[in-house]
Design a protein around this nucleic acid. Structure first.
Lengths: 225, 225
DNA sequence: CTGGGTCAAAGGTCATACCTATCGGCGCGA
DNA sequence: TCGCGCCGATAGGTATGACCTTTGACCCAG
């Protein structure tokens, strides 16, 4: 669709800074530049405005806003930043967010019971098999499922909504060769510990084990910088 | 502006469930119902779509999506839920999010130095004065400033972006009489401890002290339910 | 009963016209 | 000379109406 293309192009340009904060666009200008009607440019601008990337003012035009005003939880913005030169900074932010959220999510998951425990145990077992075999791509998929399930089992929709983000982080790590050829045995053990703790309803244990996982990730990240 | 009004009305209706998931709207229907042109309804629908509240399909119309698909970090959605019958659930989610994020933010704030420590000490002192005088409204404002500053000082934009949310939670608590007539002395002391720890660069101390604050809040919340 | 074709409904896009809020400059008066 | 207020040009805001494109649903033939 025309909208999506234009939105993507403009979004990336702004995120990358090739259209810097303070720059002024006009609906007509964009329309002629991209060969679309004002109907389209208007709707795209509305979306960008709703993400805090721009603000539209009569008699002036569409003004690009500074990065501090951006709605950093918007999924599209997240994707743009992950796809561009902002990637390292974005990954750092997200990893810190994970290190905050996931232990608490694990605690809540253990506390609020649910049948997720069994499934987590199973996923952890598959992670061990795939990990020890060095099948990193498949490992990453299951890893993402594991974390997504913990987040969902926390029964907090704001935690659950981060599942996609976590998957993105894991995928990024794998695709950029930031993973060791084989996952750390400690990491495998920690996943199993989380699963067991959730299954047993041991909330402090779940929180501690998940802390171990995300802290190791943080350490690895800061180590490579 | 026409957009904003219509967006607000429709958003609230969907969030409240008076337009349930699966319901189908049409651009023309909305246009005639609200007396606006298709230009307006289209742009509103695009925004709702970008929040995950609806999805538009040709030949069918605009279909309302189930709550699990909503983009729960969208500020507008947050406001709608806080303003309606979803308020208690939303406050619970947000409080849990705070209890995850704020301790880590405090740790990072202490770690990444910055001049925020002095300012935090000052804010904590003002909180004590206002709190002991029972001036709750003013207390809440300074409290919000305190937490916002910690989040910003963490130098993580995703944490910083939660400042508004925290303020909303605090305001909600105060306006709904969920605060004791005078803040707990322990809470005042904990704020001072956070400030001192950040100032001293004591990251474990800052994390622990902030944990004490948010855990007390969580306990109070679950206690009233 | 099944498969394909036809039709109509509703969103997607475009062009145009007019309204309206503003920014900036110009001119008048103190 | 300086300041205030009026005025016009500009660019977004809204309304229409036309046409395209996709696609769900119905009907008919095999």
């Amino acid at each position: 669709m025309l909208h999506d293309d234009l939105l993507d192009v403009l979004g990336r340009e702004i995120v990358e800074g090739s259209v810097p904060a303070g720059a002024v666009l006009t609906l007509e200008g964009l329309g002629t530049r991209f060969g679309v009607s004002r109907t389209v440019t208007r709707e795209v601008m509305r979306l960008l405005e709703s993400m805090g990337l721009v603000t539209s003012r009569r008699r002036v035009g569409i003004v690009v806003r500074p990065a501090v005003d951006w709605d950093v939880y918007d999924p599209r913005l997240l994707r743009w930043r992950l796809a561009g030169s902002e990637r390292p900074a974005q990954l750092r932010s997200l990893t810190e967010l994970r290190s905050a959220v996931e232990p608490v999510a694990a605690r809540l998951a253990a506390q609020r019971g649910s049948a997720a425990g069994d499934e987590l145990v199973e996923l952890a077992a598959r992670m061990r098999v795939l990990g020890e075999a060095g099948r990193l791509a498949e490992f990453m998929v299951v890893d993402a499922q594991f974390h997504a399930l913990v987040l969902r089992a926390s029964r907090n929709e704001m935690f659950a909504a981060l599942a996609d983000v976590v998957e993105e982080v894991l995928r990024g790590r794998t695709e950029h060769g930031l993973m060791p050829p084989r996952p750390e045995p400690r990491a495998l053990a920690a996943h199993e510990a989380v699963a067991a703790a959730v299954q047993a309803g041991d909330s402090p244990g779940a929180e501690a084990a998940m802390s171990a996982i995300v802290n190791e990730v943080s350490a690895a990240l800061t180590g490579t910088e």
